[in-house]
Design a protein around this nucleic acid. Structure first.
Lengths: 373, 373
DNA sequence: TTGAAAGCGCTAACAC
DNA sequence: GTGTTAGCGCTTTCAA
């Protein structure tokens, strides 16, 4: 009799009130007289009553749960993203459901369908789905995309265009003339952006860029692609992400090719490990955790504006989350080039470099020559 | 009218059957005549009907959701664990809820209470809660612990005792006489185990071990602790985990202390990065992803044995999961020492080493001398 | 301010 | 094999 976990009715009975009053005492405390409320809350605590999230979700349709879909949990990039999202969700009293879509649009669809109704909304990170598919999802549920710009979906973008430009100019200024771009997954929006930016800078700065890929964004793929880069006779490699860069580093080391003496390498994201690999990686540092946090905050903002509860401006119990969100604006996060040891002057004879470029090179000459010699 | 997402009733109406028949067509297809079943399934598909997970969970009490609690998402160790758990859960058609307990027993309790009822069971990874607390949880819900042995809770253990012994003997055989152990969090069960093992081997092999810690299992803590180790005049450092080891590596490098020439370093876990840091890390490779998978499978086994549905041996629709699980046995996973570049012969004059040890040292003499020079 | 009552969408006896 | 009928625990009108 008193063994089952107590429900709202048990508390009500003990307090001599109706179940609905108990419910109110929790969800709309201001609508219950202080006396009754205190009594109810005290009794509930004493009985060890805990609201049943499922039962609560059924009539309200709100689960206080968010779904986070990533293409590959394996990838440390998403570790940071997950971390940010989890923190933001927890801070707002939300629960986070995590799912791996294994880099396929199909799995993404499946998971979204399975979770729709069980979560209040989705964060789709680096979605591999088509714009059209994303719009369909958007029509059915609340969703925020990360690393995608799909009108009219709200999104969190990491501004890799600017960073990529910085990276390319960094290399150009070091005297590199011919660089390789190791491309990411075919369906990656940021990959397309990055490649386009690189081409633009190339035209402007008179660089040659060769594209290698599409590649799985993994260390192994980077190792394989390193050989292609060598074959293509480039002096610098820019990669879609740090995993590829780390693979390149490893392969070049195995082959006895000096970095940055013979080839410079630029990664992207500044994931865990980028600072302690060898040589440490010059990379486009992305505020990944912020991206995760922003995405959740944005989503929370959407949800809040969804049902503006008449009577109170803020949501009830502990509802933090985003503020001023819910607008149609994308959140754009800055990226910055972090220069470490994996980039240096282009090797060999100075062919057509400006005095300024030559000077830049000379500063590091000792190392470069020693290594290349 | 036909705008709302269709429910079981809508399908029933269209098929001219009762709602319960539709329900059955999905949950117990064999209890419905093939004709009706096909008709129902077809209509449902056509109408785009999707069972509502929440509504389904209310009466049945089963959410097909599992909770995974980790002390720190930031730690790549848990990345691997999460990955394994997520895969196992997905494979069994379960959804995974992820929560970070921020290394505190308190948060762990809070999260468990919040999630109880919303998940079918928990995987508690490297729990920082007391044995007693864990038993309380066990009394209320299904739970599997990882990296803890708390009778009678089912658990997945990574056998670090054996690995630690291997590591200590590896160092002893290289001529190290005095080593430091960088301890993990105070509440860590595996830390206690590891330290005890180390002491035992020390007695047996006539080594001195000094304990530094407890330490937060992070790179930063490792950097700070490296200084203590140097002060303690040890020739080798064994760390609670790879993060600490990577911190040590970094700090020693900053201080110009050669690894392994002057100090050898052994990590634990073989996380992402252990193979490409510099020097690459000798470490106790732990099958972390397997641990995550096993934990979920074990939990699934428990759940399955919970409600043996009369009539069918296996669970319905796609229920995979563990088999033969649910027994009282812990799953014990092996560990193995992976030797890389961060360990080498003890520096300096051979004091009281056996011929065998001396020989082991000599093989690497050139490097050691050059480095120590 | 509080109570009564009607669900939320689905499951699971139990009856036919 | 299929329909009836209670709920699951909570929210939410609507009255009182």
């Amino acid at each position: 009799m008193s063994d089952r976990t107590p429900t709202i009715h048990d508390v009500a009975a003990r307090c001599g009130v109706n179940a609905s009053t108990v419910s109110r005492a929790f969800t709309r405390p201001e609508r219950v007289s202080p006396t009754t409320r205190d009594r109810i809350l005290a009794t509930a605590a004493e009985m060890g009553y805990r609201p049943n999230a499922i039962a609560r979700a059924l009539p309200s349709g709100r689960t206080r749960t968010l779904g986070l879909l990533v293409p590959d949990i394996t990838n440390p990039f998403f570790l940071d993203l997950i971390r940010g999202a989890e923190r933001a969700a927890t801070a707002a009293g939300y629960t986070l459901v995590l799912a791996d879509t294994e880099e396929t649009s199909q799995q993404e669809t499946t998971v979204v369908e399975r979770l729709t109704g069980a979560v209040d909304g989705f964060v789709l990170a680096s979605s591999r789905a088509s714009d059209e598919r994303l719009r369909e999802i958007h029509a059915k549920t609340r969703v925020v995309v990360v690393n995608r710009r799909v009108r009219p979906l709200p999104g969190v973008l990491i501004d890799s265009a600017h960073g990529t430009r910085q990276a390319a100019e960094h290399l150009a200024s070091l005297g590199h003339r011919r660089i390789a771009y190791l491309a990411g997954p075919r369906a990656s929006w940021s990959d397309a952006r990055r490649w386009r930016t690189l081409q633009a800078v190339a035209r402007h700065r008179d660089l040659e860029v060769v594209r290698i890929g599409p590649l799985a964004p993994t260390v192994d793929a980077g190792m394989a692609a390193a050989d292609s880069a060598v074959l293509d006779d480039v002096t610098a490699v820019v990669t879609f992400n740090d995993l590829l860069a780390i693979g390149v580093l490893r392969r070049l080391r195995d082959r006895g090719i000096d970095v940055p003496g013979q080839i410079s390498v630029v990664g992207c994201d500044d994931i865990f490990g980028a600072d302690f690999c060898h040589p440490s990686l010059t990379t486009l540092a992305a505020p990944i955790e912020s991206a995760g946090r922003s995405a959740v905050d944005l989503l929370l903002g959407l949800l809040a504006s969804d049902r503006p509860r008449p009577g109170d401006a803020q949501g009830a119990e502990g509802g933090e989350g985003a503020e001023g969100a819910g607008a149609g604006e994308d959140v754009v996060l800055p990226t910055r080039l972090t220069i470490r040891e994996s980039t240096g002057p282009a090797p060999g004879r100075a062919r057509g470099r400006s005095p300024r470029q030559r000077a830049a090179t000379d500063r590091r000459t000792a190392r470069a020559v020693g290594a290349t010699g």
